[in-house]
Amino acid sequence: MKTKLTEIAPPMEAASATSEKAIDATVSNLKEGVAKATAGFETTQAKVKEGMEKAMKTAEEMVTFGQGNVEAVVKSGQIWTAGMQDLSKHVAATAQNSLAETVSTFKAFTAVKSLKDVFELQAAFARSAFEKTMSESGKLTDASMKLTEQALAPITARVTLAVETFGKAA
Rank of each mutant, 00 (worst) to 15 (best):
A37H: 04
T38I: 11
A39W: 05
F41I: 12
F41W: 09
E42S: 05
E42P: 03
T43P: 03
T43M: 11
T44R: 10
Q45R: 12
Q45H: 09
A46R: 10
A46E: 14
A46Y: 10
K47I: 05
K47V: 07
V48S: 01
V48H: 02
K49R: 09
E50N: 04
E53A: 04
K54I: 05
K54Q: 08
K54G: 03
A55H: 01
A55M: 01
M56Y: 15
T58A: 15
A59I: 05
A59C: 06
A59G: 06
E61Q: 08
E61K: 04
M62Q: 12
V63G: 01
T64F: 11
F65P: 00
F65D: 00
F65Y: 03
F65Q: 00
G66V: 02
Q67Y: 11
Q67K: 14
N69D: 09
V70E: 02
V70F: 04
E71R: 03
E71L: 07
E71A: 12
E71D: 15
A72E: 02
A72P: 01
V74D: 06
K75E: 14
K75Y: 05
S76T: 02
G77P: 01
Q78I: 11
Q78Y: 07
Q78V: 12
I79A: 01
I79V: 06
I79M: 00
T81K: 14
G83I: 01
G83Y: 03
G83W: 05
M84S: 06
M84A: 04
Q85R: 14
L87S: 04
S88M: 13
K89T: 12
H90C: 11
H90Y: 15
H90G: 09
V91Q: 07
V91R: 08
A92R: 06
A92I: 10
A92L: 13
A93Q: 07
A93E: 14
A93N: 07
T94S: 14
T94C: 08
A95N: 11
A95V: 10
A95P: 07
N97M: 10
S98P: 09
S98N: 11
S98H: 09
A100Q: 12
